[in-house]
Design a protein around this nucleic acid. Structure first.
Length: 468
RNA sequence: GGUCCCAUAGUCUAGCGGUCUAGGACGCCGGCCUCUCACGCCGGAAACACGAGUUCGAACCUCGUUGGGACUACCA
C-alpha cells in the first residue's frame, strides 16, 4: 500500500509551489489506490499561525484534493519526539551539547572566514560531564565516515559523503524538537512509504536517512520534484505567485483549470494538455515528472481557465458566476437572464471575475458610458440612427434575431451605411461599451422595455452634450 | 566558499542512439470568419547552452566548461 503525504508548515499561505507538491502527492497516492495523508508541521511556535493552517486546508479543499488521513498536527505529538530523542540519547546515538548559541555562531563565522565548513565542531560529542546544570540541546551522532545514498524516484541515485553531514540538533534547549527529526519520526510512525517533496529537501535527505537507520525504521522512497520559479528564475515570491491559492479562487479561476495547469507544470503525458481530475489520477506517474525547475506562466493558466469556462456545463458556470456578480455590488434581478448571459460570455471571459465585469451592464439601470465610446458613437451624427432604430424597434413584433436583423439591415440600406455603423451606436447606447456579445443577443437579454429606456436615455444624453 | 540538483524556442513540454530538415501547447505575428470583442479555423517566426569524447551514427551516453537553482540554523 502506497502512502504519500503533504506536510506543510503553517508559516505562510498555501502557494502555487506548495499546492503542486500537494497535488503530486495526491495524484501519486490516488493513482496507486493508496493513502494521501496531511500533516501540519507546526513545531515552530514563533512563526506558525492558525490563519495559515486555515488557508492551507481551505486551499487544498478548494482545489479538490481530499486527504484520506489527518490533518495531524505536530504540536500534539511533542511527547513522542522527546521520547525518541531521549531514546537515542540513552542508546548513545545522540548526545547532550552544552555549547551556547553565541559561541556556535562565532565558530561558524570564523570557519566561514577561513574557508572551512561551517559545521559543528563536535566539542560535546565525547564530553562525559554533566554540564554543570547548563542548558543543553540533544544532537544526533552522525556517522563520521562512509556514504549515504538513496534512489530518488525521479533523479536516480544520489550520494553524499558522511563528512558533509553535521551533528544535527534534534531537540532544542527549550525541549522542542527540530524539523529533520520530527519529519523522520512522523513519516516512519505514520507509515508513509513514499515521500514526494520539493528538491530543496535533497540535502536534508541523507541527514534524515541516518536518523531512520539509528531508530531502526525502514527508509521510505524519496522523490524530489523541482521547484517552481518566478519569471526572474529565482524562488517564488509574492510578485509572481507565492500568494495564497485562495487568491486564484477570488480572481475567478476554476479549480479544474488550476489543477490541470499545476499538474502539467513539471509533468507531461505526451502531447496532451487538458486532463480531467480522473484522467490525471489515471495517467499520473512520477516517472514522467521532469527534473528541471519550471516557471509559472499566467498566460497559459488563463488560456486553460478560458478553456474550462467554455467547456464546463453552463449551469455549473452560472452557479459559480453568481457570487462574482454580487461581489461587484450587483444583484441579479431577473433570473432568466443568467443562462443567456453565461452562454454568451463564456467564450469571451477567461475568468469568472472577468465574466462578471463584462456582464455588469446587464444588471445596471444607469449604465456608465465609457468616455471614448461615447465620444465616438453617441454624437449628433449618430443620433438620427439611434432615433430611427428606436422607432423601428418599437414596431417589432418580437425580439427574434431575424426580425432584428431585418430592421438593422433595412436601416443600413436606407441610410447607405454599413451594418457596423448602425450597430456600434446601439451597442454603446445599451451597454456603454464598444465591446459586448452580439447585438441581437444583448438586445434580447436586456428586454424590450429596458432597451427602449436605454435608447431614450442615450439619445437624450447626446442633446445634453451638444448643448454644452 | 562547500555540498547537491538542473540545462530542448519567451514559457510549459514531447523526445528515452538512427523514424529529428526536433513534435505539441501557451504567448507572439499574419490571414480567414465577422455587427464590436472573443471563440473557431489556416499559416508563420522561434529551441537541442558550449567544448571534448564514445559510436558507423548523439538532443539522447561519458567527461569538462558555462549558466541557473537549492541547501549550508537551537526555520521548516
Amino acid at each position: 500500500m502506497i502512502k504519500t503525504r503533504f506536510a506543510p508548515s503553517p508559516t505562510g499561505n498555501l502557494h502555487i509551489g506548495g499546492a503542486r507538491t500537494a497535488l503530486f502527492n495526491y495524484l501519486a497516492a490516488k493513482h496507486a489506490k493508496g493513502i494521501f495523508l496531511l500533516r501540519i508541521e507546526d513545531t515552530d511556535v514563533e512563526r506558525s499561525k492558525e490563519g495559515y493552517t486555515r488557508d492551507i486546508l481551505e486551499g487544498l479543499a478548494w482545489l479538490g484534493m481530499e486527504w484520506d488521513e489527518g490533518p495531524h498536527f505536530q504540536k500534539e505529538r511533542m511527547d513522542l519526539y522527546r521520547e525518541h530523542a531521549f531514546k537515542l540519547l540513552a542508546e548513545g546515538k545522540a548526545y547532550k551539547c552544552y555549547c551556547s548559541p553565541e559561541t556556535l555562531e562565532e565558530k561558524r563565522k570564523a570557519a566561514l572566514k577561513e574557508g572551512r565548513k561551517p559545521n559543528y565542531d563536535r566539542t560535546c560529542r565525547d564530553y562525559t560531564g554533566d554540564g554543570e546544570g547548563k542548558p543543553f540541546v540533544i544532537r544526533f551522532k552522525t556517522p563520521i565516515s562512509g556514504e549515504v545514498s538513496f534512489d530518488d524516484l525521479i533523479r536516480g541515485k544520489i550520494t553524499f559523503k558522511c563528512e558533509e553531514l553535521d551533528d544535527l540538533v534534534i531537540l532544542r534547549s527549550d525541549n522542542t524538537p527540530t524539523y529533520n527529526f520530527t519529519v523522520v519520526i512522523d513519516d516512519a510512525l505514520m507509515g508513509v512509504t513514499r515521500i514526494i517533496r520539493g528538491d530543496d529537501h535533497i540535502n536534508n535527505t541523507p541527514r534524515q536517512i541516518v536518523i531512520y537507520e539509528a531508530l531502526n525504521f525502514g527508509v521510505p522512497e524519496f522523490a524530489h520534484v523541482p521547484l517552481i520559479h518566478g519569471k526572474d528564475r529565482g524562488r517564488l515570491s509574492k510578485r509572481h505567485g507565492a500568494t495564497s491559492l485562495l487568491e486564484y479562487r477570488n480572481d475567478g479561476f476554476l479549480p479544474e483549470a488550476l489543477m490541470n495547469y499545476l499538474a502539467r507544470l513539471g509533468w507531461a503525458y505526451g502531447d496532451q494538455e487538458v486532463f480531467s481530475k480522473d484522467e490525471l489520477i489515471e495517467k499520473f506517474d512520477l516517472k514522467n515528472v521532469g527534473k528541471s525547475p519550471s516557471i509559472f506562466d499566467m498566460d497559459k493558466l488563463l488560456w486553460l481557465n478560458g478553456h474550462y469556462m467554455k467547456n464546463l456545463p453552463e449551469e455549473e458556470i452560472a452557479r459559480r458566476f453568481e457570487p462574482f456578480v454580487e461581489k461587484l455590488g450587483m444583484k441579479i434581478r431577473n433570473r432568466d437572464q443568467l443562462a443567456p448571459i453565461v452562454a454568451n460570455l463564456k467564450e469571451r471571459a477567461k475568468t469568472l471575475k472577468e465574466m462578471a465585469e463584462m456582464a455588469a451592464f446587464f444588471f445596471q439601470d444607469d449604465i456608465q458610458y465609457d468616455d471614448k465610446a461615447r465620444q465616438k458613437f453617441l454624437t449628433p451624427a449618430t443620433k438620427p440612427v439611434l432615433e430611427r432604430f428606436l422607432s423601428g424597434f418599437r414596431g417589432l413584433r418580437s425580439l427574434d434575431a431575424e426580425e432584428q436583423r431585418q430592421l438593422i439591415e433595412g436601416l443600413a440600406q436606407e441610410t447607405n451605411k454599413k451594418l457596423v455603423d448602425i450597430i456600434q451606436p446601439i451597442r454603446v447606447a445599451l451597454s456603454g461599451k464598444t465591446v459586448t456579445p452580439g447585438i441581437f443577443e444583448v438586445i434580447s437579454i436586456i428586454g424590450r422595455t429596458d432597451v427602449e429606456k436605454r435608447l431614450e436615455r442615450a439619445i437624450a444624453s447626446i442633446d445634453t452634450h451638444t448643448s454644452l
